[in-house]
Write a protein that binds this DNA or RNA. Structure first.
Lengths: 411, 411
DNA sequence: TTCCTTTTTGGTGATTTCCACAAAACAGGC
DNA sequence: GCCTGTTTTGTGGAAATCACCAAAAAGGAA
């Protein structure tokens, strides 16, 4: 029938792969179907011509991160998220991407996925582009089904995650059973990663987050959930050499992209230590909450600290602050230095603080203060005289450092 | 009468000075009368011959400390405290002491004071020594009167001291009034000094203590009292350059002499910071009690710390310990190092601790550990690798130090 | 045993720290 | 203004630190 010629996709099909092959046959080019997060859903096998980007996508079952990044930068993805029309992409050799056409799959106002058609030897004609659009329309219900199935699984895994976070699962075997039933391979060591947002996360932002989590492929995320203004992740720490660096990097990318792509700012990343025992997920989660709480109290000093470990002395800061305030104790040494500074317009306190901040390194300190090394030496000598302290005693030194930092919060 | 010739001292006299002159006339030599604590009570003026030690005693209204020390070492004072017979002392030029005879003044089993007779040109005959003994007997009642008068004053000053220690006197003027009425000149700055004994201080020990306090002349003691197993002193901090050193020295002498002279051991000295405001005596006292409490909890690490200031980080030690135990947190870095030490029979933990104890000084640390500097350097490099820490970050370093110390108390 | 890795020790030279001394700059009081 | 004491900067030399390399010693696994 003429009708069937006009729309060859008005037919039933069992699997998405079958449908990909159908499109491929009609358009005479290799076809790939992805979900909204650039995970591979199906690909045609009928046509063996392809390019490196497509191979990588099929092998990894998702579009490589650098390809996604490039497509964002260069505008393809933003365009696909706006229009229902096909978008043509020019060859980008640096990421192994040949000429192709993409179209987004829509359900109401939401993008469910994408269809990619490689233009290996020839460009698609306008008619073929129209057919592609029809294909995108035809596939949407299938994708919707997949999505709801995935949503159900997601719900179950979120439930599991919350049980773990709140410490409701105490038996190791029970936990492993849950993982198995959700087809999650548990890792031998893990880290809890929390992103604190400035405001509660709404539906739209949640989609952005999911998109980013799926497309940033640096860390393996086992479970995730959202709680008001927090994004909580359970990530695997297996086979990562420099974990701290990796976590820092991941957080930085996440925060950076949330900002540049969606203009969401003020996200604070924080992570727990590494744990092997899944019963300790609750503990790890509490650790991150503690870090967030300390960071919110002392934002300036803890700016560059993201884990409990890194907090160092700030782990105890509110405890110390409270103790000092209760005993209304003043560090005599610091008082004397303050007095001296006041009377002589000097800045011994500042000198001491910078010196201690720089781990008693003369060169660095002098450089930071823009003074001669000998001047610094002289000042330090004066400090030991006036404050009656011995800067070679780690104990006294630490107390000075801590009291210096505490002073800033004496209201 | 023959009787009066035999005992020329059976007579009444108004003042002790008058009596000293009487003895001097009878024995034909200069006479000095001291109380049990070697404070000058009276001296003869009839005979102008004398020696440097006597001059110094009269000028300072007490026997100089070094003279007392010498007389203890050389056995005179211990002998005087045992026998009621006169004791002869040979010239000791190094302390300006000429030949002389001394006798102790007894009331029942207690020594109330001493009479000194200088043998400038001639030695006292046996008859004269016998007369000296009679003089000592005659003067005892006068001394007893003085003592009870002094005791009353002491009682009043102790009462004042307790009021100050417990913070019952809040008005500055009121405090000054009390001082004036007790004829005590208040100093502009003071320190509370507490000696913690191992057991309650009994009557005999109290006498020893009073004796030592009166004879150690390094610090000016304004008020003192005894509370069960504690000796509490209010000392002036005026006109002392290096107060800490002075306090350390005083404590050391006190503890040393209590041991060598009276075999009382296990005394822990402790002192407060310097305060100007007499209303803060209570605060200063509490400070010393805190120090004592911390020292009793962590005796090994706080061995050489005697003031709150010196405690440094140990000021918070029990707070930190409690916090760590509550959160059952383990420092990952230290755990890794411990693991490594265990597996490889190494001693990175020890190395790190000594290094931190020595304020990151390579030379000192290497010397203490009996290893080559390069070995130490190598180990430190390994430590940073294994523990994943940056030893140039004061924050991390401090946390390591603190956790290292805390570990020793994880039971 | 040999082989391999880890650890210790030694040596060298560039850089940094520490110390003493002195000249110059500066500030405050008179 | 001048005087005095404090602060800054400069110089120079001894000691310490740091970053290398390399040889020797130790310890473990095949």
């Amino acid at each position: 029938m003429d009708n069937s010629l006009h729309d060859p996709f008005r037919t039933t099909f069992d699997s998405l792969d079958e449908f990909a092959d159908l499109i491929s046959q009609v358009l005479k080019c290799p076809i790939t179907i992805e979900d909204a997060n650039h995970r591979l859903l199906a690909y045609s096998t009928h046509d063996e011509r392809t390019d490196p980007a497509r191979i990588a996508t099929i092998i990894g079952r998702r579009v490589p991160e650098k390809v996604i990044n490039q497509l964002w930068k260069e505008g393809t993805i933003p365009a696909l998220l706006k229009t229902r029309e096909p978008i043509r992409v020019q060859t980008m050799n640096e990421i192994g991407l040949g000429n192709r056409v993409a179209i987004s799959i829509w359900k109401n106002e939401e993008v469910l996925g994408f269809i990619w058609a490689l233009e290996i030897d020839k460009s698609l004609s306008d008619k073929e582009l129209y057919q592609l659009k029809k294909a995108a329309d035809a596939v949407k219900n299938k994708l919707l089904q997949l999505q709801t199935r995935k949503n159900k699984k997601e719900e179950r895994s979120q439930e599991l995650f919350w049980k773990l976070l709140t410490g409701h699962l105490t038996s190791h075997d029970e936990i492993l059973d849950h993982f198995r039933s959700l087809k999650i391979t548990p890792s031998t060591s893990f880290v809890i990663l929390v992103f604190q947002f400035q405001e509660n996360i709404n539906r739209k932002e949640e989609q952005y987050i999911m998109y980013l989590l799926k497309t940033i492929q640096r860390l393996k995320i086992i479970l995730y959930t959202i709680d008001c203004d927090q994004l909580i992740l359970l990530t695997s720490a297996d086979q990562i050499k420099n974990l701290t660096e990796e976590l820092d990097h991941f957080s930085q990318i996440f925060v950076g992209k949330m900002n540049e792509r969606y203009k969401i700012t003020g996200i604070t990343p924080v992570y727990s230590g590494i744990y092997q025992d899944y019963q300790k997920i609750g503990k790890a989660y509490n650790e991150t909450l503690t870090v967030l709480s300390i960071k919110s109290k002392f934002p300036a000093e803890t700016k560059k600290m993201f884990s409990f470990q890194q907090l160092g002395i700030y782990q105890f800061f509110d405890l110390l602050l409270k103790s000092r305030q209760n005993n209304d104790y003043v560090n005599e040494s610091l008082r004397k230095l303050h007095d001296y500074d006041h009377q002589h317009n000097s800045n011994l306190i500042k000198t001491l603080e910078v010196y201690l901040d720089h781990d008693s390194n003369l060169n660095d300190t002098a450089k930071q203060l823009n003074i001669h090394t000998n001047t610094l030496n002289y000042r330090l000598k004066r400090i030991t005289e006036i404050a009656q302290v011995n800067l070679k005693e780690p104990n006294q030194k630490m107390m000075l450092y801590i009291d210096l930092k505490l002073e800033k919060y004496h209201v």
